[in-house]
Design a protein around this nucleic acid. Sequence first.
DNA 1: CGCGCATTTGAGGACTGTCAACTTCCGTGG
DNA 2: CCACGGAAGTTGACAGTCCTCAAATGCGCG
Lengths: 256, 256
Amino acid sequence: MRASDIERVKGLPLFADVAPDTFRVATAGGHLQRFPAGTMLLLEGDPVDFLYVLLDGQVELHGTWNDHEIVLAILRPVSTFILAAVVLDAAALMSARTLERCEILMIPGDAIRTAMRLDSHFAMAVSRDLAGCYRGLVRNTKNLKLRNSTERLANYLLALRAADNSGGVVRLHHEKRVLASLLGMTPENLSRSFAALQKYGVSVNGAVVTLGSVAALENLAKPDPLIDNHAPRGGDIVADADAEVWLSDLTRAKPR
Amino acid sequence: MRASDIERVKGLPLFADVAPDTFRVATAGGHLQRFPAGTMLLLEGDPVDFLYVLLDGQVELHGTWNDHEIVLAILRPVSTFILAAVVLDAAALMSARTLERCEILMIPGDAIRTAMRLDSHFAMAVSRDLAGCYRGLVRNTKNLKLRNSTERLANYLLALRAADNSGGVVRLHHEKRVLASLLGMTPENLSRSFAALQKYGVSVNGAVVTLGSVAALENLAKPDPLIDNHAPRGGDIVADADAEVWLSDLTRAKPR
DNA sequence: CGCGCATTTGAGGACTGTCAACTTCCGTGG
DNA sequence: CCACGGAAGTTGACAGTCCTCAAATGCGCG
C-alpha cells in the first residue's frame, strides 16, 4: 500500500481526526486488493467480515428480490461501504459488485470494533459516519416517494452540476442503465425522461449532458436542501456538519 | 418521571448495557413532557436540540416537498427518534407529529454527545442503534423499489402477524390513510390493494384484518429476510445482532 | 468490417394517482 | 335515545405514470 493511499484513507471523514494509535489499531490487518470489473465482492445475506474502503474504481451496491435487481447506490473513491453491517457484525443486506477495475482496502471488522472500544473519539466518528449514511437514505426515500421519475432525473442532473462545479455541461459517471436503476426507473424510461427534459433545455450526447437553462430545469426540479444535499440553504443556517451520503455519493466527488 | 419510566428507558437498546454513571450523564437535563394528539414536535429544517424518547403514544415522522406530504415512519413506545440529527448536531430532515396523546422524554443533544465522548461503550451503543436504523432504511428502500403496492401491503400484514404473534387475526395500529402513505400509496389504492388480497384469504373489518390463508399470502408476498426483518432465515445463520428498525417500528412491538 | 451490447423508439398494458360521489363510522349535541 | 355532522373509508371513472416486449438504431471493440 502506497503512502499516498494511506493519506487518502486518513482523509476520509471516518478517520480524519483519529489519533495515530487508534488509526493503527483500526487498520490492523487491512490489505489492499485489486479486482477486475464485474466482480461480486459481497453477496446479500453473506456475513460481513471486512470494512471496505474504495480507493480506485466504482462499486455498485444492489439488492435483489424475486428475480429483480435494483441499484441502491454507486460509490466512487474515496469511500467506505457496509460500515453498518461491520458495526453490528451482521449479514449484508446489499450485494456489492465492481463496475470497473477497482482498488480496495479491506479492513477486518474486528479491528474496527476494537478501535471503537478503545477510543471513544473513533466510535463517535463511526457514529457520525453512520448518521450521515442514514440521513442520505432518508433523503433518498423522500426523493423516491415524493417525486416522479423525470423530477428525480432533473434533480440528479442539478446535483451533478453542483458536485462537479461544471457550468452547463455535466458528464454522467455511470452507464445509463445503471443510472436508471439508481434513480428507480427502467432504462427505457430514463431515455424518455431525458427526452422530456428537452423542453427544459437539456440535451444529451452520450455521457455528456448539456443544461441549456439551469433556471428552467430548477423550476421543474424544485431542489430542496432537505432532499438534495447540494441545494442552497434558505437562510444562513449552517448545516455544515453533514458529511452526508447521497445517491452515487456525489458529495465525495466535490473537491475538498 | 416515574421509576418505571426510567426502567423503560434503560430497556432501550441504546441504553441497555450502559454504565450507571454514563446513564446519568446521558440523561442529564432530560425532562418528561406530554403532548396532545396532532402536535408538531419538530419541523423539517429545524435545528435539533433534543433526542426524543417516546414512552407512550404514537409519533409520525413525515417529509414534505412541493405541497405533498408522505409518512416515512411511525413510532410506538418505547423508541428514540432523530438520533442521527442529534449525533451530527444538524437540522432535521423529517418532521415529527404526534398521532395520539404522547408522553415523551426529551434529552438535550449535548448530554448525549458528552456521554459518547466520555464512554466509548455508549458511543458504540449509539453506533449500533444508528447502524440498525440505517439497515431498516435499506430494507425499506428495497421494499419500495422492488415490490408493487399490493406486495408491500401483503408483506406488511405478514410482518404485523409476526410481530404480534397473532394467529390469523391482526389489528392495524394506524389509520388507513396513514398506513397508505407509510406503504407508499394513496388511501384509495390501499383500499383496492386490500380488495385484491381477498383472493389470498384476506378480509378486512375496520382495523381488524383476518388472514384466512397465510400460505397463500406468503406465496404472493414472498417475504425475504433481507427485506423483512421478521422473515425466517434460510439456514442457521444467527443474525440476532439486529436491533433493526423497520416500517412503523414493528420489531419493538415484540415482547422482549 | 462486423458483431455485440447499450441505447432509443414504439406500442400496448399494468400500475398508480386524481377527482368525485357515496357509504360507514363515530362523537356531539339535541 | 336519537339525529346530525364530519371525517374516514370505499368505489367508480378517468388520466397519467411506469413497465414490458419488440424492434430499430447507434456505438465501440475485436
